[in-house]
Design a binder for these strands. Structure first.
Length: 419
DNA sequence: AATTCTTCCAACCGCCGAGTC
DNA sequence: AGACTCGGCGGTTGGAAGAAT
């Protein structure tokens, strides 16, 4: 492999980033914004090329990144979107707030492709393997994708030809059927939300989109109780998506979330807001104040583990069955939020939305919104309910979203009194 | 315990389009 | 118009970590 041309000019570092480099880059961007990426390394005192800095920021340092494993809902959404968009990872990532195209691409290549094949579905065409092998397809995949793109870009598609789920289901019906696609997490819900049970896999999944995409959801009136639906697996830090609002706890001491479809609505927050994850406490009756504890969402490469306490469990269940508010790195190390080391503190702000909100205004203001990940409005509009007044609905939704955001901030302010 | 194999993912590479001069 | 820079994207790779032998 050759070195990128810009890296020939100077002797530039390659490979994994050290914590020191991360800190330099973070400090620089926090203070000055990234501006012109090519000038960032020089200004930040880094021996890296601008591209490398940009990539590092986008894929790792950005404060609005969601960490942790992908939920079943996210996986299903990726499959759906892939059926429509193909390998347009950046567009898929735009529908999954807090996820990067690189992450999604890796997930697809390492996991989802395999799963689809195991289910007898061709990961490229999203059709049954037998059908693909028989060569009965009249169209090539590229043709299909081209057609889909045209549809996506056409106004008629947006307004008249049905909602996204209808399109997706017509394009890739098989994708919904994988994994018993009613995600096991959902099906395991003790409370039996009824939202996603009692239906065929496909219907369940689609219904979850259709029914949840209602204005009321935007106001948090569509509570899917996730207390028992969240993964209790290995990596153990259970992350909320951008749509999860810790404030919902107040109602009944449980977190509630809206369904995944919220993820593909136009974003309502700026880049540093709670798209980052919250660790949660799963047991009932957790005082909401507990949530205010700063969770340290560092979930990075192994070198961070140097500052992490040695708890390989990661789940950290307590004797009473509740989970302590802990976080993990990707390697299952757990760093108690109360055991932060000095070297880790700077990144609290990065990875903890609560702290970020409480951070000095100057700090927040200086972080340039990650506009590259703001979902395209066109695509965002696709999943909105059919309506003659779609545009008006969009405006209303935006208004509502904005309203929600304002309320959330107000609640945060009230809760923490820091802002 | 040592070695080999497999998986996963962070990061790099090359290409492309847009913007500027 | 052509050269150049820059940002962005998708494909690919290298190596760390874990699993298997």
């Amino acid at each position: 492999m050759g070195r990128h041309s810009c890296c020939y000019k100077q002797k530039l570092r390659k490979g994994l980033w050290s914590p020191e480099e991360d800190e330099k880059l973070l400090r620089h961007i926090t203070k000055y914004g990234h501006g012109c990426w090519s000038s960032v390394p020089k200004q930040a005192g880094l021996q890296r090329c601008g591209k490398s800095c940009r990539l590092r920021w986008i894929n790792y340092l950005r404060p609005d990144l969601k960490r942790g494993t992908f939920s079943q809902e996210e996986e299903n959404l990726i499959i759906e979107l892939h059926a429509v968009l193909g390998n347009r990872w950046s567009q898929i990532a735009a529908q999954l707030p807090g996820r990067t195209d690189n992450e999604i691409k890796n997930l697809w290549n390492s996991c989802l492709k395999k799963k689809l094949r195991q289910r007898g579905i061709d990961p490229v065409t999203h059709k049954p393997l037998s059908e693909v092998e028989n060569g009965e397809e009249g169209k090539t995949r590229s043709q299909e994708l081209s057609n889909e793109l045209n549809l996506l870009n056409s106004e008629s598609f947006k307004s008249d030809e049905g909602s996204y789920e209808q399109r997706a289901s017509s394009i890739a019906p098989k994708a919904y059927e994988m994994e018993g696609s009613c995600s096991s997490k959902i099906n395991n819900t003790k409370n039996d939300t009824n939202l996603m049970s009692n239906c065929s896999n496909k219907d369940m999944f689609l219904d979850s989109y259709t029914t949840s995409c209602q204005p009321s959801d935007l106001m948090g009136n569509y509570p899917l109780h996730i207390t028992d639906t969240l993964p209790t697996n290995s990596n153990s830090c259970h992350w909320f998506s951008q749509t999860a609002r810790p404030f919902d706890i107040n109602s009944n001491s449980e977190f509630t979330i809206t369904s995944n479809v919220m993820s593909i609505l136009p974003p309502t927050t700026t880049s540093f807001l709670p798209s980052t994850s919250f660790c949660y406490k799963s047991s009932l009756g957790v005082p909401s104040e507990d949530i205010s504890a700063p969770s340290f969402g560092l979930n990075g490469p192994s070198y961070w583990e140097a500052s992490a306490s040695n708890n390989s469990n990661g789940s950290n269940n307590t004797s009473d069955g509740s989970r302590e508010l802990t976080t993990t790195s990707s390697k299952n190390s757990v760093l108690s939020s109360w055991e932060l080391t000095e070297e880790a503190k700077w990144s609290e702000y990065l990875h903890n939305p609560m702290l970020m909100l409480a951070a000095p205004e100057s700090l927040c203001n200086q972080i340039r919104p990650a506009t590259h990940l703001i979902p395209d409005n066109t695509l965002g509009a696709i999943i909105l309910p059919d309506s003659k007044n779609q545009q008006q609905q969009q405006q209303q939704q935006q208004s509502q979203n904005s309203c929600i955001f304002s309320k959330d901030v107000q609640k945060l302010t009230a809760a923490f009194g820091h802002i």
